[in-house]
C-alpha cells in the first residue's frame, strides 16, 4: 500500500429518520493530522454525520472506519475503546451542569481513564489556562459562565484527554466575531499542539477558512464539493458559491421554492 490508511473513512453512509432521508450516500476520507471542515445549511445533517461516526446514531447502511477499523455496529464495550481516540465539542456545549467546571474538563480523565482526582484537577486547570480561563473559574458551575466561556470550557474538555481525533460542531455559532476568532485560533493551536486530526462543522466561512485544510459542502444528504480550503473561492460549483457569499438567490433557494 502506497497511500496510508486514512484516519477516518466514510463510504456510502445513509441515515434516515423515518421517511426523512438526512444522509444519502456520504463518502469522505480524512487523513491523519488533517483538518477538514464541513459546511452546509442548517438542518442539512451535519451534526447527524458526526454522530454517526461517534456511534451515537447508527446509519442504515454504509461503512465508517476509524484507523481502518469498522466502527458501525460495535458493541458498547468495544465502542468505549474507540471513543478514547475522540474528543468532541458539542454544538450546545453539553457541559454537565451538576459538575463544576474543572470536573467537567477532567471528566474523561477521571471516569474514562481512572486517573486520581487530584492529578486530573491539575491537568484540568492547565487545559483551562490553555483556553484562556483562570484557575478560579474551575470552581464555578457551567451555568455561572457566559456563552463564550462555556464554549471554551467545552473546548478544554474536548482536548483534555489529548485525543487523536477531535470533532468541533459549530464551535463559533452564537459568539461575537471577536470571540469567534479567539475560538478559531484556539482550535488551530490545540490541533497543532496535539497533532490531532480534526473534523469540524460550521456555517461561518471566516471560521472555515481559518481552521480548514480541506472543505466539504453538505447539501441534500451528499457532499457536493470537496476540495482544498484555498480553492473554495474558485470551486466552480454554483451551490458552493451561493453558500460562501450568503446570497438568497441561487440554485439553493430555487430548490427550496420548488
Amino acid at each position: 500500500m502506497t497511500t496510508p490508511t486514512p484516519k477516518i473513512r466514510l463510504a456510502d453512509v445513509h441515515k434516515a429518520f423515518g421517511p426523512k432521508v438526512v444522509l444519502d450516500g456520504i463518502d469522505l476520507s480524512v487523513a491523519r493530522g488533517e483538518s477538514v471542515v464541513v459546511i452546509g445549511g442548517s438542518g442539512t445533517g451535519k451534526s447527524v454525520m458526526l454522530k454517526c461516526i461517534l456511534g451515537l446514531l447508527r446509519p442504515e447502511s454504509g461503512s465508517i472506519q476509524v484507523d481502518g477499523e469498522e466502527v458501525v455496529g460495535l458493541s458498547s464495550r468495544e465502542r468505549e475503546q474507540v471513543m478514547r481516540k475522540f474528543g468532541m465539542l458539542f454544538q450546545g456545549g453539553a457541559l454537565f451542569d451538576s459538575l463544576k467546571v474543572w470536573e467537567n474538563v477532567a471528566f474523561g480523565l477521571i471516569q474514562g481513564q481512572g486517573m486520581e482526582r487530584a492529578r486530573a484537577r491539575d491537568i484540568a486547570i492547565e487545559k483551562l489556562a490553555q483556553v484562556g480561563l483562570a484557575a478560579s473559574s474551575g470552581d464555578l458551575f457551567p451555568a455561572e459562565l457566559s456563552g463564550g466561556m462555556q464554549k471554551r470550557v467545552s473546548l478544554a474538555r474536548a482536548i483534555a484527554t489529548s485525543p487523536e481525533i477531535i470533532f468541533f460542531d459549530e464551535p463559533t455559532t452564537g459568539l461575537d466575531p471577536i470571540m469567534a476568532d479567539v475560538i478559531n485560533d484556539l482550535i488551530v493551536k490545540c490541533c497543532k499542539e496535539l497533532g490531532a486530526t480534526a473534523l469540524s462543522i460550521t456555517h461561518d466561512m471566516a471560521s472555515a477558512r481559518k481552521i480548514a485544510d480541506r472543505i466539504a459542502m453538505l447539501y441534500k444528504g451528499r457532499l457536493i464539493w470537496v476540495g482544498p480550503a484555498k480553492d473554495i473561492d474558485r470551486s466552480g460549483n454554483e451551490f458552493v458559491d451561493q453558500f460562501i457569499h450568503g446570497r438568497a438567490q441561487g440554485p439553493i433557494s430555487m430548490e427550496l421554492r420548488a
Binding site: K51, L54, G55, L56, S76, R79, E80, M83, R84, F86, G87, M88, F90, Q91, G92, A94, L95, F96, D97, S98, F107, G108, Q111, G112, Q113, R157, T161
Partner: peptide
C-alpha cells in the same frame, strides 16, 4: 427531569464520547 434535560442538551451523548456508559 434531570436525565431528560441531560438527554435534550446532549449531555448523555457527551458521556458516551467521554468513554463513560
Amino acid at each position: 427531569a434531570e436525565i431528560g434535560t441531560m438527554r435534550v442538551t446532549e449531555q448523555i451523548d457527551a458521556l458516551t464520547t467521554l468513554s463513560t456508559n
